[in-house]
């Protein structure tokens, strides 16, 4: 009885948060309401977090509060200190952390299910774990490269080498095969490690050939990816608010990326294929 009421409260809170996220994004798109929109969305996030703390399995409050406190302090400090001109790379950095978090969540849940003798991992869970790990990993390393390029920590030019596209294609195929094996035989960690490692590598390899001038578009696209990754972790954990907020970011991020491309007079495909510095011919 008590447990049921708690579940209903949590679900209703998730519903309120989802609506506030939608209203927030809508308001962010208009000049005079943008700042309030951001606050709406922050309130939505707060509600979602508080509701999740009520979940029955959540027991270790001290560790969770301490971790959130440290994360908030570091996040606020960095966000306040950064110069206005460095904003896009800051967004890239934070976005990468979001992708990393999705990878870790999916891996954590995978580990629990793969090593619990009493549970056979359902195919759906296997598929969604693989998807969130791959997309999250690409988001993480891709965003780190984008951040490095904008911050001048690595060469901002388009870095291309011969055989780049075939190499990516081969890695992608290996990752695909490992993913299928993982879904069929989820208790075998080696496939998981392979999928994770190649995902991380592909994030680097796909962003490295893109020039620094195109980085804002790339960050916008990776932002969309991090939404999709969060959305799939929602399927892994059977959690609606993750799916809704993730899908919102995933879909609106893709549209925004397209709009940004148009504003810069470029096509999304050519940005993705990279090598813009070389007059459009790549590899």
């Amino acid at each position: 009885m008590n447990q049921n009421i708690l579940t209903i409260i949590i679900q209703l809170a998730y519903l309120v948060a989802s609506v506030l996220f939608i209203v927030g994004i809508k308001m962010l798109g208009k000049t005079h309401t943008a700042r309030e929109g951001n606050i709406y969305s922050a309130v939505a996030m707060f509600i979602a977090i508080v509701a999740t703390l009520l979940v029955q399995e959540v027991l270790s409050y001290t560790e969770i509060f301490v971790t959130i406190l440290i994360g908030s302090a570091v996040g606020t400090y960095v966000a306040k200190k950064v110069e206005m001109t460095q904003m896009p790379e800051m967004v890239g950095l934070f976005n990468g952390f979001g992708g990393l978090a999705s990878v870790l969540v999916a891996t954590s849940e995978y580990w629990r299910m793969a090593h619990d003798a009493n549970i056979a991992m359902p195919v759906i869970t296997g598929v969604t774990v693989v998807l969130s790990v791959i997309i999250g990993a690409v988001t993480f390393t891709g965003s780190m490269v984008a951040y490095g390029k904008l911050a001048g920590k690595i060469n901002g030019n388009a870095i291309t080498f011969s055989g780049q596209h075939p190499l990516n294609a081969i890695l992608f195929l290996i990752m695909l095969v490992a993913s299928i094996f993982l879904v069929l035989d989820p208790n075998n960690d080696i496939y998981m490690i392979a999928v994770l490692a190649i995902g991380l590598l592909l994030g680097i390899l796909t962003v490295i050939p893109i020039g620094g001038a195109d980085m804002p578009v790339v960050i916008s696209l990776l932002n969309s990816y991090s939404g999709v990754a969060a959305c799939f972790t929602g399927f892994v954990l059977n959690n609606q608010v993750l799916i809704i907020a993730g899908a919102l970011v995933g879909a609106s991020g893709i549209i925004l990326t397209q709009i940004m491309c148009k504003a810069m007079n470029r096509s999304l495909v050519s940005v993705l294929l990279g090598g813009f510095g070389q007059g459009g011919s790549s590899a």
């Binding site: 969305s41 932002n223 954990l237």
Partner: peptide, 30 residues
Amino acid sequence: VPPTLHTPLMSGSNAISGITIVGAIICAGP
């Protein structure tokens, strides 16, 4: 969306993609 709002909108939706914090709490909870 006016072009001046592109970057803030990207940044704002980036914050929302941090919703994976909900998943993190569930995994860190037990």
